[in-house]
Design a protein around this nucleic acid. Structure first.
Lengths: 205, 205
DNA sequence: TGTACATCAGTGAACGCGCGTTCACTGATGTAC
DNA sequence: TGTACATCAGTGAACGCGCGTTCACTGATGTAC
């Protein structure tokens, strides 16, 4: 962390990290260019050497998030290969694990109001994450008879929806909204029922 | 709409409605006390005759939303009785219909950062909405053999998660994030697979 | 019906604040010779 | 190695803005007699 001297060293990334910390602790609304600059030990004006403005900084945080997200899911998937089922389930668990471990990134990606199509770089990163889950769904769906197989994109959309819903409704919020179930259990059991519905798990287990 | 004269007539509700319009068009972040007052044809200071402040106004909008939400789901449920299955599916459709028809309310309820436990009134309204879905889930789960029946609260949590996820990921956003599927189809098919997984729909249909 | 009065919903001016952004600048760093 | 110079990352002051909130006030409305 070369900070001595007039120049910062790696201000761009320091700003992204400060932004992530702020987004995590204050929500996307509470995040402020000025505050991020202050946390990075720099004047607000310095931010404009590295980003076009506030939104651009959030977008970069989101982009890095999508890349990590994709890597994490890919890694989980690979680890449980060659079982398409186990690998798929691991991918689902990785979804929630990412949201828990990197809430700042998650919020920047999904709750900041930044469109995933804001820049080509951001769109690419988002598509890469989506691609991991879709490939996992695609592999898994080969185990369903072709005539009763839903499209893999629909299938993965269902899983993303349930995962995102669990994160938003049950894994966020400190107090109060408590459900009696741990988010992990909720998601795991929900995906289990769903996969049983697709005939991928034996009906009685 | 009695507006003539010095007094407004029904400023409290006019402010809630202005807030809903603003939240819908600008997001929870874009919503402003000052702007809501202006839209209601009134000085910002007048708001404080009816609400404690900005958050309190949003909370009231959310409260009204939860009540409407509960009514809408209850109505859908009643309409398809006595078939527990049809009634449950109708309730799921009502979820999405509400989110689509009343985006301002939906955002105030789920995306504004207002805790559902902020006031007893708000908590009651939220609990009432949750209760409708849980009763529907409970009725339906009676059709599952007791030994392989998941708790109705978990069951309804799964459905809420998937519904909320579909709303957030596929039913919001004007451009870009387009999935190839209509949110209604996505949710209906997702719930269908899920219910099949519970053994509530014949495995081959 | 008419008058006196209490209530209280809304006014308007003011506040302090932190925001995002701009600008001309400065001085540390890296490079060419 | 030493000097001259170009680059460019960060400064600091300033901007205009709209925010949420407060306050003493005013005047329309409703009520008692």
């Amino acid at each position: 962390m070369p900070k001595r001297g007039y120049h910062h060293g790696n201000l761009r990334q320091a700003l992204v990290e400060a932004a992530l910390r702020l987004i995590e602790s204050k929500g996307p609304t509470g995040f402020t260019l000025t505050e991020a600059a202050k946390q990075a030990g720099v004047t607000p004006a310095a931010v404009y050497r590295h980003f076009e403005g506030r939104e651009d900084l959030i977008a970069e945080a989101a982009r890095q998030g999508f890349l990590m997200f994709a890597d994490l899911m890919q890694h989980a998937y690979d680890k449980y290969q060659p079982s398409a089922l186990a690998a798929f389930e691991a991918t689902g668990r990785a979804y929630l694990a990412f949201a828990r471990k990197h809430p700042g990134h998650y919020i920047a990606m999904f709750e900041s109001g930044i469109s995933a199509n804001r820049t080509p770089e951001l769109a690419d990163a988002a598509a890469r994450a989506r691609g991991v889950l879709e490939r996992a769904a695609n592999e898994l769906s080969k185990h369903i008879p072709a005539d009763k197989r839903p499209p893999a994109t629909m299938f993965s959309a269902h899983i993303m929806a349930m995962s995102h819903g669990v994160v938003e409704l049950y894994a966020r919020n400190a107090p109060g909204t408590s459900s009696p179930y741990a988010p992990e259990d909720l998601l795991e059991s929900g995906i289990g029922v769903y996969l049983r519905g697709l005939g991928l798990i034996a009906p009685d287990s």
